[in-house]
Design a protein around this nucleic acid. Structure first.
Lengths: 132, 132
DNA sequence: TAAAATTTGTTATAATATAACACTATGTAA
DNA sequence: TTACATAGTGTTATATTATAACAAATTTTA
């Protein structure tokens, strides 16, 4: 039943839902949406989410406790993520900017810490909301 | 009783606690610590935390749901925050790097969004933990 | 000193996330 | 192909994080 090298049943259901969504989804929103598909309890959702984050298929927007599908082909397993977040409509956009990514990946702390990963969240008002 | 332009009683108690701490503190850890001082319920803690974040006296580490005192003199009211986080010992260090801060403050999204604020979290293993 | 804004105290509850256990499915390698 | 390890599932209960809503007191402002 499992597809080699691929997603399990619950992972696929939950990934599909997030992937189709135009906005970040929260764990319990996901739970309610997939109950008809047999996923009934929080741990089932959180386990799938954990795995999907781990493999870089989705990202967690930490400031919102919500999840988006990865849109960037070159974000190697979630090691370097950046998002733009509209504080009005809550829209989230993944930023794929090679220069930014390289700049930050090369950034290391003075105190001798070598970074393995970063997450960057920008906040503002998006174009669409500015017009209203 | 309130000091003009300054912190209220609960805000001061909670700020002092966070400021003295060498590690990020969580809301309920704070709550338990200040119960002897008369702060008994979650809303009292969260309200003080909200205000302290708003005024830039503390920052929230989003990936940990925890709070640290601001150590940076030039982080203008939390508009530009960056942290280094050790995944082993959980230590958090605020990064004050003028170049980094300028670089990111000037970064704007291609899709016409002008950013007002950002938060950057770096993850790795700190010097101390590497030795163990 | 009256009105506005902020802070406090309180109870209840909402929202987010994990522990622990029993079981099933899949991959791998003798 | 059997048996072992690894990963995934289902389930109940509970832990953790955060807010709503309301009444009252304090401080600031004009």
């Amino acid at each position: 039943m499992y597809k080699e090298n691929n997603l399990s049943k619950n992972q696929q259901i939950i990934f599909d839902l997030i992937n189709k969504s135009s906005e970040p989804l929260k764990a319990y929103t996901i739970l309610f949406s997939v109950q008809k598909k047999g996923i009934k309890a929080p741990p089932q959702v959180y386990r799938a989410l954990d795995k999907l984050v781990e493999t870089g298929k989705i990202h967690k927007i930490e400031s919102k406790n919500a999840f988006v599908a990865c849109r960037s082909s070159d974000c190697e397993i979630s090691k370097a993520t950046a998002f733009s977040i509209c504080e009005s409509c809550e829209m989230v956009d993944e930023i794929s900017d090679t220069k930014l990514s390289k700049y930050l990946s090369g950034f290391n702390h003075k105190k001798g810490m070598k970074f393995k990963r970063f997450n960057l969240e920008f906040f503002g008002i998006c174009k669409k909301c500015k017009k209203d």
